[in-house]
Amino acid sequence: MRTTARALAIAAVAVAASGSLLTASPALAVPTPTPSASPSASPKQDLGLLAPAKASVSHPAVKQKYGMWCAPATMSAILRTYGYSRTQEQLAKQMVTDDKKGTPSKNIRLVFNSYVNDKGLTMAWGKTKDPGALLNNIAYDVGVLKRATAIIVDADLMPYTNGAGAPNIHMVTVRGYDKAKRTVTVWDPANNRTNGNHTVSVKTLSKAADPIGYLDISR
């Protein structure tokens, strides 16, 4: 799927209700993430620099049940690191996920904040195109706050896919990093052979990511 002026897809690989595997399906439009008060400011960068050299956070291996459900699946996994157990079905309903159009990005942030605000935290869409800043922010979120988070990527630009070429906008969790190696560990919820944990360079992740597609955590 190709983005329109105010549109972005969040989807990946379709799975039939019976559980049989299907091939990658094109994503459909949802609004592009809009910038909010930036948690990527210098104070957070300083904290990221002080984070451990490497760290990871565990969460359940949640696989998306349907082709447009990468956001509900990702959020279901991430919320476990906050102590909340929510199913994909519950989150898809709360975020108004459409089986053909995907999940509106503003709903992802608003619903997620309805949970994390109770813990004194806020999530906002953050910039991704500076690999060093992205790694520092991930180091803070995962290494200091010990929470998994999410990023919107073009799945075809991730190194573990076949790289079909057409934009296939998708959401994955961010659950680990290694500063020395400059790598990041993601969990891909897609229901095909690409699902699971993958380690990618932060440069590759930055290149694959939507320009404003990182769910940044701040106090």
Results as ranks from 00 to 15, higher is better:
Asn136Arg: 15
Lys127Asn: 10
Asn192Ser: 14
Gln45Ser: 06
Lys179Tyr: 06
Ala16Val: 07
His59Ser: 01
Ala16Glu: 12
Ala37Met: 06
Leu91Gln: 01
Asp216Arg: 13
Val202Gln: 03
Ser206Met: 08
Thr194Trp: 15
Ala155His: 15
Ser42Ala: 11
Leu157Gln: 14
Val111Pro: 10
Leu49Cys: 09
Pro189Lys: 07
Ala77Asp: 01
Tyr140Met: 09
Thr183Ala: 05
Met158Val: 11
Thr81Gln: 01
Gln64Thr: 07
Lys181Tyr: 03
Ile212Asp: 13
Gly196Asn: 05
Asp99Glu: 12
Gly176Asn: 03
Ala7Asn: 13
Asp188Lys: 04
Gly102Val: 03
Ala77Lys: 02
Val62Thr: 12
Asp141Lys: 07
Val172Asn: 03
Leu121Ala: 06
Pro104Cys: 01
Leu79Lys: 00
Val144His: 08
Val13Leu: 04
Asn192Pro: 04
Lys207Arg: 14
Tyr177His: 07
Asn192Lys: 02
Thr161Cys: 02
Ala14Val: 09
Asn117Pro: 00
Thr81Trp: 04
Val144Thr: 15
Ala16Leu: 12
Lys129His: 13
Ala133Ile: 10
Asp178Ala: 05
Gly176Arg: 04
Met75Glu: 10
Ala139Ser: 15
Ile10Lys: 00
Leu145His: 04
Asn107Asp: 11
Asn107Phe: 12
Lys146Ile: 00
Thr3Gln: 13
Gly67Arg: 08
Ala133Tyr: 07
Ala190Trp: 14
Ala190Tyr: 12
